[in-house]
Amino acid sequence: MAYVTIDGVQYEKELLELAKHHTTGRGESNLAKDEVVDLFKSANDGPGITDTELRTLRYIRETFPFTDAAADLFDAEFAKL
């Protein structure tokens, strides 16, 4: 698992790259519901979600733009963790 450090805090590189991929390119700007599903699938790729993955998901929620429906879904899924 690869990591990236932002402002002295370690995050999971794969999750950040996935969020960036979904918000850049041909007309993309906000994370949509299906992309939120992708993020949580990626975070659940092992036996459980690590503290780094939780921190990364929280960072994505605070940093990246979401559609309203995607924000609601993200918040609901994050609350289950």
Rank of each mutant, 00 (worst) to 15 (best):
A2E: 10
Y3G: 04
T5R: 05
T5L: 03
I6A: 01
D7S: 07
D7G: 00
G8F: 06
G8A: 06
V9S: 02
Y11K: 01
E12R: 12
E12P: 08
K13N: 14
L15S: 05
L16Q: 04
A19S: 12
T24K: 11
T24W: 08
G25W: 08
R26D: 15
G27M: 11
E28D: 12
E28H: 13
S29T: 13
N30R: 15
L31S: 06
A32I: 14
K33S: 14
D34N: 12
D34G: 11
E35N: 11
V36A: 13
V36I: 10
V37M: 11
V37E: 12
L39R: 06
F40D: 04
K41G: 07
K41N: 14
S42D: 08
S42Q: 13
N44H: 15
D45S: 13
I49G: 02
D51H: 04
T52A: 09
E53A: 08
L54W: 00
L54Q: 00
L54N: 00
R58W: 02
Y59F: 09
R61M: 05
R61N: 06
E62Y: 00
T63I: 02
T63G: 01
F64M: 03
P65A: 09
F66H: 07
F66P: 06
T67D: 08
T67A: 08
D68K: 14
D68I: 09
A71E: 10
D72Q: 15
D72H: 13
D72K: 15
D72G: 11
F74V: 05
A76I: 04
E77L: 10
E77G: 03
E77C: 01
L81P: 04
